[in-house]
Simulated scan of single mutants.
Amino acid sequence: MSVIDLTEDLVAIPSHADESTAGAFIAEWLREHTTGAVNRDSHGNVIARKGQGDDSLALVGHHDVVPPDGSQVDADGEYVVEQRDGRLYGRGAADMKGCVAAAMLAFRDADPAGELVFVSFVGEEQGGVGCQAAIEDGFAPDYAVVGEGATGYSAPGTTDVAVAHKGRRGSTLVAEGAAAHASEPDAGANAIYRATDAVDVVRGLDFPSTSVLGHEMSGSVAVTEIDGGSAWNVIPERCTVTVDERTVPGERAPLDRAEAVDGVTWRVDQDLPPMACGDADFADAVLDAAADAQDSAPEHVVKPHATDAGWLAQAGTDCVIVGAAEPGEAHTADESVSLAVIERCRDIYERVAESWPSE
């Protein structure tokens, strides 16, 4: 079976509301076509292992997808999948069933240098719940190549090696006041005024920044929503402010400073960790494999988006990201992936599996 055929089969399986059918397909395929020991855990993650060694290398993907656009579903509720102009179109083609298929075939064909692990997680699009659950159960590879998008960063069509990515911390500032009639504003405490004072604190914060293997990374902090008030003639007693922070490894913006404003509290609603590869030799070895698999010259790059690599890195796995998706491709109504780049990723994964860990 070719990687293109396998990608088509995977993309055709709906997996936005329920990943179980896709997970069952992956597990059964691995049992039938590989020599690996295959386990589908209680969370729905599919994990396969083969080879031996002191160090382990994981090829990492996920088989859940975001809800499809109406144009990506037919009248029977099945996903629409089609090839044209050298690309495969369909929900999940780029993010990231193409690279799941590439990893499955690389796992089948590689003669690994150490223990080789294939894993496809559930719940990546829900904040990495499948990856977190696996880590809690003891999943701890030494190294990982995560198949999220890394094509087109240094140059169009080039599949690069991402050595770091940003995380996301979403939080809420809650301003409490006291209601009063708007004709007597001094009789109350205006929660919106308190909230805007807190917003001024946020606006004055420096963006977090760091360096990973010589690459500069800068985060960002932005107020994205504000909600308060109950009527035109009532002094508001409550106002909430949503803050989106893009985090970098080892750094966070000091958003707790907003709590210095009277009546304001700060809570964290989501904290997706950033990722930084801590092993330069591993990052270089993967870059060598990527260079050998294509005519163009790939580079080490950084990604703006959080992935399961953040959870793995936080747990102690050295990660890089190599995948077929291009910037802006995932989650779109016309999502597609290059067939040639899927083939390239399969080649890269097999090369890495056979050369790392190095002796």
Rank of each mutant, 00 (worst) to 15 (best):
M96L: 09
R108C: 06
R91D: 10
F121H: 14
Q83N: 04
Q126L: 08
A106H: 09
D54Y: 05
F139G: 06
R40L: 12
E148S: 10
I26Y: 04
A48Q: 13
L105S: 07
I135C: 08
D41S: 15
A101H: 05
H63A: 02
V65C: 02
L88A: 12
D54I: 08
A17W: 00
Y79G: 03
G36A: 00
S42G: 12
V65K: 01
G70N: 14
K50S: 11
G77F: 00
G130H: 02
D109R: 13
L105T: 08
D142A: 05
P156W: 00
G77S: 02
E124Y: 01
D74M: 05
P156S: 00
S20T: 15
V38A: 11
D74W: 06
G36L: 03
A22I: 13
W29R: 14
F139I: 09
G147Y: 06
Y143I: 07
G70A: 11
G152D: 13
G86A: 01
A24S: 15
Q126T: 14
C131H: 06
A58Q: 13
Y89T: 07
T34L: 05
L88S: 11
G77R: 00
D111R: 11
T34V: 08
A155L: 11
T21H: 10
M96E: 04
R49E: 15
V119Y: 13
V100G: 08
G114V: 14
I47S: 10
G152I: 08
M104A: 06
R87A: 06
E136Y: 01
A93R: 11
G152F: 03
L105H: 12
G86T: 01
A102K: 03
F25C: 03
P112K: 04
Q126P: 02
A24P: 08
E78C: 04
L57D: 11
Y153C: 05
M96F: 08
R91M: 08
A93Q: 09
T151Y: 02
G152L: 09
A101M: 08
G149V: 12
K50R: 15
G98Y: 07
V73S: 00
V73A: 01
Q132F: 01
Y153P: 04
E32R: 15
V117C: 06
D85R: 01
V38S: 06
Q132E: 15
C131A: 15
A58E: 13
D111I: 06
K50V: 09
V65A: 02
S56E: 05
V119Q: 13
G130L: 02
V38Y: 09
K97E: 06
G61Q: 03
V66G: 01
R84V: 01
V38Q: 12
